[in-house]
Design a protein around this nucleic acid. Structure first.
Length: 499
RNA sequence: CGGGAUGUGGCUCAGCUUGGUAGAGCGCCGUGUUCGGAACGCGGAGGUCGCAGGUUCAAAUCCUGUCAUCCCGACCA
């Protein structure tokens, strides 16, 4: 798109649409640092709203926040073999603690005399530093469960990055818990999945998700098993929006974290870890937004209602005053409002601008309408515009917000259902994922082997997103035969091309 | 890391083939007329052409290297 206005339509090039939207809606910008973005105020506002809602849920389920170091001694990483394999290839390493002038005096270089005896890894995730710490915190069954969450940044040196979806540095939360029994840890990982992540995705983001367990090939490095919430994007791909891992005793054993039980026996603890990241913002965009720009569910919209005063001179003074008055009333009800009283831009410009930035409801405060006693109210989620009597504006805006929240979820759910199919033959399976783009969710039988999973992925680029915890349809758990190998299968699993 | 493309005022790009004093539109600043879905006039500011070498009297332009970004693969929240 060569124009400064507008963005590439989704249908033309989804990827370009996404990249342009992120920048033009002022959510984020590329930075001088490879793979790292600058999250701009409008984008960060969404993250803050997400943080607040999630943090409340974590607290509600008994967790507390703490903070652990950004740098992790390299040796910690060597202690859990699977974990090393999973992350070693994408670690940034700190090797020196001082700079000195280069011989030519023009630049700086790491001072060879300041080489660290043990190098540090910039955390790609904090299991190792946390479990090294927990070792000192846990002695007795009375110290359990230990339920801690951390809000932090992490770094993974990814080959290819995309703003919000995969950046080298990203913001997230990571929960790390310790339990006396396998069952209790299992309950914990499922509680997070259901009470926090699933609920947040559906009730706050208005994004329906499928909760399931990852196959061996897709699970977290070092986990016993991994639970996930999987969402569908508008280009028919799957996006992993959050994961909750039951780590078993692997980290407890690697870091020798034991406790004495009530019976006096020394046992290793059971662990979970779970996280969601700024990728949620990417998920949000890909699930709801359109060719006009960002569509934000009201619960996470930085600006829920925007007022556009119109007219010039005395009329302008009147419309601005009225807009501010109405905005104040709405604000008193806890609605996030904005009066766009910029004088340089016209109302047409402002309407487009707020469509782009994802204001949920726009109220045009015009002189003529004000005299007639009715104002134009436009919904961002639909094309719908309505006339609302001035004295009902506040009530109507408030009710519209919950209608929009519900509508966005319903729309996304209908979209996912329309693009979820059950496939029983290999030819049909191949056809579904042929070519570029997604292919939606395909529910197919799978023989449960890694080998088959790999071969399917190789042939189609589609991977097993999860094995649903609850079947989407009762027939999905009726036995069948693997779509690839023809071997017996207990249930259908979800295949999709993933972000 | 493999294949492809691109780096020129804040943004989108032209100029490069055939070396010779850096351009346009948008944006920005000032000003006036405008203001109901991206208004217009006039006057301005702003770039050692990604970076480092090399060739040359002379490099945005030619050569080498390097870095970054985007697209396609492998990897991944």
């Amino acid at each position: 798109m060569s124009s400064n206005y507008g963005i590439t339509p989704q249908g033309e090039n989804f990827s370009e649409w996404y990249n342009e939207l992120v920048v033009k809606a002022e959510l984020a910008d590329h930075s001088a640092v490879r793979g790292c973005m600058v999250i701009k105020p409008h984008g960060y506002a969404i993250w803050e709203l997400m943080q607040r809602a999630l943090d409340d849920m974590f607290k509600e389920t008994g967790h507390v926040n703490a903070y652990f170091p950004l740098l992790i001694p390299k040796s910690f990483f060597e202690k859990e073999a699977d974990h090393v394999d999973g992350f070693a290839k994408e670690c940034a390493v700190v090797t020196h603690h001082r700079l000195k002038a280069t011989p030519d005096g023009k630049g700086l270089m790491p001072d060879p005399d300041a080489k660290l005896t043990e190098e540090y890894i910039i955390r790609p995730t904090s299991e190792t530093i946390i479990w090294n710490t927990y070792k000192n915190w846990i002695q007795s069954y009375r110290d359990l469960p230990l339920l801690i969450n951390q809000w932090a940044n992490v770094m993974r040196w990814e080959m290819r990055t995309r703003m919000f979806l995969r950046t080298a540095e990203f913001l997230w939360q990571e929960g790390h818990t310790a339990h006396a029994t396998y069952e209790e840890a299992e309950t914990e990982s499922l509680t997070i999945l259901h009470e926090c992540y699933g609920k947040f995705a559906e009730e706050w983001m208005a994004v329906p998700v499928i909760k399931g367990v990852k196959s061996e090939g897709e699970k977290f490095a070092g986990a016993d098993h991994t639970y996930t919430i999987e969402a569908m994007t508008q280009d028919l791909r799957a996006i992993q929006a959050g994961t909750s891992h039951h780590l078993g005793q692997s980290f407890a054993k690697a870091f020798d974290v034991t406790f004495q039980s009530a019976e006096g026996k020394l046992e290793h603890v059971y662990a979970t870890s779970w996280g969601v990241s700024t990728r949620l913002i990417g998920t949000l965009i890909m699930a709801h937004s359109d060719d006009k720009g960002l569509v934000c569910p009201p619960k996470l919209a930085p600006v829920q209602v925007v007022f556009i005063p119109m007219g010039r001179g005395e009329v302008w003074d009147v419309t601005v005053a009225k807009a501010k008055e109405l905005a104040a009333e709405l604000k008193a009800r806890g609605v996030r409002v904005k009066v766009d009283d910029r004088t340089k831009e016209g109302p047409g410009f402002k309407a487009k601008d707020w469509d782009l930035k994802g204001a949920c409801v726009r109220v045009d405060v015009g002189g003529r309408e004000l005299e007639a006693g009715e104002l134009g109210v436009a919904r961002r989620d639909s094309e719908e515009k309505l006339l609302v009597p001035v004295d009902q504006i506040v009530d109507r805006c408030a009710s519209l917000l919950s209608e929009i929240q519900a509508n966005l979820y319903a729309k996304a759910l209908a979209f996912r259902e329309a693009n979820t199919v059950r496939v029983d033959t290999w030819d049909e399976f191949l056809a579904r994922f042929d070519g570029e783009g997604g292919g939606g969710f395909v529910l197919a039988h799978w023989d449960g082997t890694q080998e088959t999973e790999d071969k399917i992925s190789e042939a189609t680029k589609a991977t097993i997103r999860c094995i649903p915890l609850e079947p989407l349809h009762p027939d999905d758990v009726v036995e069948g035969t693997c779509v690839f190998s023809g071997k017996p299968s207990k249930q259908r699993v979800i295949f999709a091309k993933a972000y």
